[in-house]
Design a protein around this nucleic acid. Structure first.
Length: 582
RNA sequence: GCCCCCGUAGCUCAGCUGGAUAGAGCGCCGGACUUCUAAUCCGAUGGUCGCAGGUUCGAAUCCUGCCGGGGGCGCCA
């Protein structure tokens, strides 16, 4: 597809944004007091009701001191004038909906605008922020399971989405390589290497044995060193699994252990270098948000809405995990992000109030910190809940999932549902049904277009695109006398399926904006499926390659190119491939 | 006991900052391949949007209570 025309940032929002703007400005002329109220511009439930529908009159009736229907009439009349010939007609319906019927020229111009935007169609639009997205952050004590898979797919896709929407995104993995769990892992490996029993609360399973085999001289090493060596191996393995799963590379790997190391650039009250953890604790102490009790140091998190105060430093002198996490968030603040997004598993939700409290105690604006909770993936077998025990080594890993159903089906399955609903994953069923996965429907539509364009030939496609892109200017100049195409001939009327496909395409920028703003990549999947369906209906109804007259073929080729682009973009945002043939 | 998420068609789920006749995929039933890709298409079946109140021109959507399912409430990480 063509990507040469990289126009301004808002090009992606046109032309639907332009129509919405026209409705808004006309409506506010009639009801100036209604400024600031949100007006809808939607596809009506029934195609007979028109191309678009607005509730402007319903929303603004009171401000205009008119009946909704009367106001709708007024808006329609003014809009008609403003859009010149492109608004074929309008109707007031029901309590005061204003239904707009747009003519073919408007559709052609809109398609031309989409083609003109090229790869940037739907991009940008956000008030750009520098955002850090931290996701997966699986403990390096074992392989990743399907819960991590969901977190990975979501975090990766959300990052892509935010980036495409115009934000400056960095991705980070927080490695919990400190604390008792690593010690336990080291001890477990040591026991296995020495042919002893693993402690009851230690780590079991195939992968621990493998770690013991892969670490040279494991039997002679101390547990602490074994732990360190295992973390390295596990982190490597995690990174490789994520890469196979299509996760774009992380910009940062932050090791928890580093937060405990003294840094030259951080100075304590006495001017001596301190660690990030000490630095953060001093900030809290200096701000008067801590106190000592029962031999421990506490954060007065209840001052910031938490249920109870929390321990930062134990009676034993050890820092809690919470203290590390506070330091981690403080370091991220100091790195200059405008927004931190943490993507956590459902078991962390109780952790949110204290983290938010700590963030505020550090002097941060709690609105900058978003902690998104992924609901669980329930593993099923034959319709029944299956146990997942890491200790016993019984779980389905990310690698298993990919091997069984492939990256595309797995990612689509995990991403086509909202992150705050629990997912039942029946692997047997998933394998059996993977060929029914809607992802293939979307990919098929993409491949089909590729095949059609190949049949038309690159030269013909290029020529057609030039023609289709020109529709904007020509139609604009020919509004009064009816639409004409480039050669001045009368344009053939668009088929209803063509008009539908164009309108479906025009929704793309809004869908992207919604999905990004609401942190909801599953909306992209839903959109892609609908677009593929709308395109397939067009394919059924309208011959493209070889259709006469040639101007019709040109428009349709242009539509194919535009749809293919939006499908490819949607799939890419989900981390799913867009094949040329299937 | 308190906190978070969920409850929509037989199944899995969209729709939720209020809009018109509540949607999709799968399953089930009946049809369509000499076609630019049938991994497709067309048609049929299928819902008291958990229950009860409230808010209003209008509620699956917002508020309250209840019921049911899942998860969480450590000086663990």
């Amino acid at each position: 597809m063509s990507s040469d025309t990289e126009t301004d940032h808002n090009a992606g929002q046109a032309p639907l944004g332009e129509l919405a703007g026209a409705v808004r400005s006309v409506a506010l002329q009639l009801a100036p007091d209604g400024w600031g109220r949100p007006l809808s511009l939607e596809r009506p439930p029934n195609a007979d009701l028109g191309d678009y529908s607005t509730n402007a009159a319903l929303v603004l009736a009171s401000a205009a001191r008119k009946s909704p229907r009367e106001l709708a009439e007024g808006i329609g009349a003014m809009l008609s004038e403003r859009l010149q010939g492109r608004l074929a007609r309008f109707e007031v319906a029901g309590p005061g909906f204003l239904n707009l019927h747009l003519d073919d020229a408007w559709h052609r111009q809109s398609l031309a605008a989409v083609l003109g935007a090229g790869q940037r169609f739907g991009a940008g639009g956000a008030a750009a922020e520098r955002i850090l997205v931290e996701f997966v952050s699986a403990n390096p004590t074992g392989p990743m399971h399907v819960g991590h898979a969901r977190n990975a797919a979501y975090g990766d896709s959300l990052s892509r989405l935010l980036d495409f929407h115009g934000h400056q995104v960095e991705r980070e993995f927080y490695v919990n390589d400190a604390g008792s769990q690593i010690r336990k892992l080291g001890e477990s490996i040591q026991a296995l290497a020495r042919g002893q029993e693993v402690a009851a609360d230690g780590y079991q399973g195939e992968y621990v044995q493998e770690l013991a085999r892969r670490i040279p001289q494991a039997a002679t090493l101390e547990a602490a060193d074994l732990g360190k060596a295992a973390v390295l191996l596990m982190t490597e393995q995690i990174e490789a699994s994520l890469r196979r799963f299509g996760v774009l590379g992380y910009d940062h790997w932050q090791y928890e252990s580093k937060l405990h190391e003294v840094r030259e650039d951080l100075r304590g009250r006495d001017g001596e270098p301190v660690s990030a953890v000490q630095h953060a604790l001093q900030l809290l102490e200096d701000a008067g948000h801590t106190y000592s009790s029962e031999g421990a140091l506490w954060l007065r998190s209840t001052d910031f809405g938490d249920d109870k105060d929390r321990v930062l430093v134990r009676g034993s002198g050890e820092h809690t995990y919470f203290a590390s996490d506070i330091a981690y968030h403080q370091i991220k603040r100091e790195r200059g992000y405008q927004r931190q997004i943490d993507i956590w598993g459902a078991d962390h939700h109780g952790y949110i109030p204290r983290m938010r409290a700590a963030y505020e105690a550090l002097g941060g604006d709690p609105g900058e910190l978003e902690m998104l909770i992924m609901q669980l993936v329930h593993l099923m077998r034959g319709g029944k809940r299956a146990a997942m025990s890491k200790r016993a080594g019984e779980f389905v890993t990310l690698d298993d999932l990919v091997e069984e159903i492939g990256v595309d089906a797995a990612r689509w399955y995990l991403l086509s549902r909202s992150h705050d609903t629990t997912i039942d994953l029946d692997l047997d069923l998933a394998v059996r049904q993977s060929s029914e996965n809607p992802v293939y429907y979307v990919q098929y539509a993409h491949a089909r277009i590729a095949s059609m364009l190949a049949k038309a030939g690159a030269d013909r496609v290029g020529e057609a695109l030039e023609h289709a892109r020109g529709a904007g200017t020509v139609a604009a100049g020919a509004v009064a006398g009816g639409a004409a195409d480039l050669d001045g001939e009368r344009a053939e009327p668009l088929h209803p399926s063509e008009r539908d496909a164009i309108k479906q395409l025009l929704d793309f920028p809004n869908e992207i904006a919604e999905a990004a703003t609401r942190r909801a990549p599953h909306r992209v999947a839903a959109y892609a499926l609908t677009l593929a369906q709308t395109f397939t209906a067009f394919y059924r109804d309208c011959k493209v390659v070889g259709v006469q007259p040639q101007s019709v073929e040109s428009t349709r080729i242009g539509l194919c190119v535009a749809v293919q682009g939006a499908l490819a973009r949607s799939l890419d945002l989900l981390g799913v491939s867009a094949p040329q043939e299937m």
